[in-house]
Structures are given as C-alpha cells and as structure tokens.
C-alpha cells in the first residue's frame, strides 16, 4: 500500500532552494528562521513533533539523496551519537555557538565591529562569501546575522550529509538540535499535563 504524496512531502524543494539562494544573496538566510520557529511553535502549542514527523524539508532531502539516490552506506549509527550525553551536549554546544553568533551580530549593529562577509563552516573554516552580498537597506547587522545564520544552516547541512553518507540517510535527525529541543519541550509539556490530570 503506497502512501499518497501530500503537499508537505515536497518541502525538500524549499530546503534545497534555501541553500541555493544563500549562494546568490545572503539576505535570504533570514528565511531560515522559519525552520527554527515553526518546530518550536508546533511543540509549544500543539505538544508534538509534527515538524520532524511530516514537514522537515531537510530530513526529506537526506531521505531522497541517501535513500533514493543511494548515497548512504545505510549502516547503524554508533551508539555514542544516539546517547543522551551526545545529543544534549550537541544541543548545548549548538546553543552556545548560536549565541556567539548573535553576540557578533549585536556588535556589528552597535558599530563596534565591521561586517565580516564570511560564512563559517563547521565553526572553524571561514569561507569568503562577499559575492553573495549586495548591500542592505538597513544596518550592516542585518547582513551580519544573515552570514551567521547561513553559517549555522550550512554547517548543519554539511554535518547532515556527512552522517547521511556514513550511516543511515536521516542520521542527522538523531542529533539534530531542533529535534532534541522539541522532544524536550514535548516531554516537559507531557509531564505538566499529566500532573494537572
């Protein structure tokens, strides 16, 4: 019995488009905030992980490339990656790096630092990205956030593709910080609702 495709089964196109747009105009990186706020809103309001389960375009992209295109070894992920220590540790690390990025953005907004037209891959490698910057109508901080946010998105995509190739297609889902965070919210929400009953 083959499941009929729904509109949300094509959200991988949106994810792919997002990554491509970042090569042409970095300001499109702001659109990535949807991937942050929608899963959080669903978890907080509805108390489930419908975003991961249905709508995550990035997960679909890994499924497609690793599954249908066969670019995955389809091996088991090492136990330590799926352990709580690693998942929560990675979430904290991700948070810290995210706030550092926000701090950098603030410094540019405040005029204490010049705009750095670079995309930092894997929190280490600074890739020149000036060709995707054509000026901004607002403060340079707007562009700085775009560079920083696109760095986060590109880094997680690269990590996702790496673990897709090494292990199973959607290995990223195992340690995805958004997935870990939304699961934590759902767990917390479940505890509070069961206490109320």
């Amino acid at each position: 019995m083959k499941r009929k495709k729904k509109w949300y089964d094509y959200l991988w196109i949106a994810s792919l488009t997002y990554l491509i747009l970042g090569f042409f105009n970095i300001l499109f990186a702001w659109l990535g905030l949807f991937c942050f706020f929608i899963p959080l809103a669903i978890a907080v309001i509805k108390g489930n992980k419908a975003y991961c389960n249905k709508y995550c375009g990035r997960g679909q992209l890994f499924s497609l490339v690793g599954g249908r295109f066969g670019l995955s070894r389809k091996k088991d992920i090492p136990g330590w990656i799926r352990s709580g220590y690693f998942r929560y540790g990675f979430l904290i690390f991700f948070f810290v790096m995210f706030f550092l990025m926000l701090w950098n953005t603030w410094l540019v907004f405040a005029g204490a630092k010049n705009l750095g037209a670079v995309v930092t891959l894997l929190w280490t490698f600074k890739l020149p990205w000036h060709w995707a910057y054509h000026g901004t109508l607002f403060s340079d901080g707007v562009a700085q956030f775009a560079f920083g946010f696109y760095s986060v998105m590109l880094t997680s995509t690269v990590l996702g593709f790496l673990t897709m190739a090494l292990f199973k297609p959607r290995s990223w889902c195992v340690y995805c910080p958004m997935g870990t965070m939304t699961q934590l919210i759902c767990k917390a929400k479940n505890v509070t609702t069961s206490q109320k009953q």
Partner: peptide, 24 residues
C-alpha cells in the same frame, strides 16, 4: 528510552501502525 521521535518510521510503515503521540 533511545527513540528521538523523528518519525522516519511512520512514513515507511505499509500498514500505518506507527504514531509518535505527544512527540515523545
């Protein structure tokens, strides 16, 4: 205990027997 509630299993189940209630 180890499930990350990603829901990858839901899509492949030919009998729609899998759910992720409350995202846990």
């Amino acid at each position: 205990r180890e499930c990350v509630a990603c829901g990858c299993c839901i899509k492949v189940c030919p009998r729609n027997t899998i759910t992720v209630p409350n995202g846990i």
